[in-house]
Design a protein around this nucleic acid. Structure first.
Lengths: 103, 103
DNA sequence: AATACATATGAATAAATGATCATATATAGT
DNA sequence: ACTATATATGATCATTTATTCATATGTATT
């Protein structure tokens, strides 16, 4: 019984990657950033205004999300515009949001 | 600009719930448990065998998942069988797994 | 009732995490 | 060159988290 199941074990690599992505989504600040960037591109300053948080905290989280390629950035002069960079994650975010809102 | 965006702000309640669910999925052990329970019902002992982890650690995580109604349990004598209890989360797990496996 | 087995639980500990502070870097305007 | 603005970064600190250990609870068997 256990033998059969063990063979079907998910690879450590796969779990790690999965966990990494879900962990990224498992924080209120990062979720707010993602939500704010749905359908829009915004500079750090604007994100800070919307979230009403410190610039540093937001910047740190943006880097976190960028490392996972969940967001990408575009520099124009001294301002940096962030936008979502992973349609699939975007899709799962929206899906889960529906899940939470209704049933 | 910021005014308009702030109005579209996601509610604190919604973010909290979202974060709670994603956080639950953001841990390797819990992901392995969920994966193991896909399409099956298993007792704690078997899960412990498959994950090759301490019984206590598994039990703690099962409680965690149960509190969020991600898994449910069924008692038969002295053994307790666990199974998945949220189709939507199950669906998102599978979706994300595909995402990670392929592109 | 005594023992064995299955699961749960509380406390303790080490590691990870997120915000903040201070400061650095980069670009623009004067 | 100087100043202002936008963003990034490193260190620190408090909190959270996951595992382990020891032990408790619950059930079956003899």
């Amino acid at each position: 019984m256990e033998e059969v199941l063990k063979e079907q074990m998910i690879s450590e690599q796969a779990v790690s990657e999965l966990a990494e992505i879900f962990k990224a989504l498992g924080d209120p600040t990062r979720l707010k950033i993602i939500h704010t960037l749905l359908n829009t591109e915004l500079c750090v300053h604007d994100i800070v205004q919307v979230l009403e948080m410190g610039q540093s905290a937001v910047s740190h989280q943006l880097r976190y999300l960028r490392n996972l390629r969940i967001v990408k950035r575009r520099k124009v002069g001294k301002t940096v515009y962030y936008s979502l960079d992973d349609e699939h994650i975007e899709q799962i975010f929206v899906q889960m949001l529906q899940h939470v809102k209704h049933g």
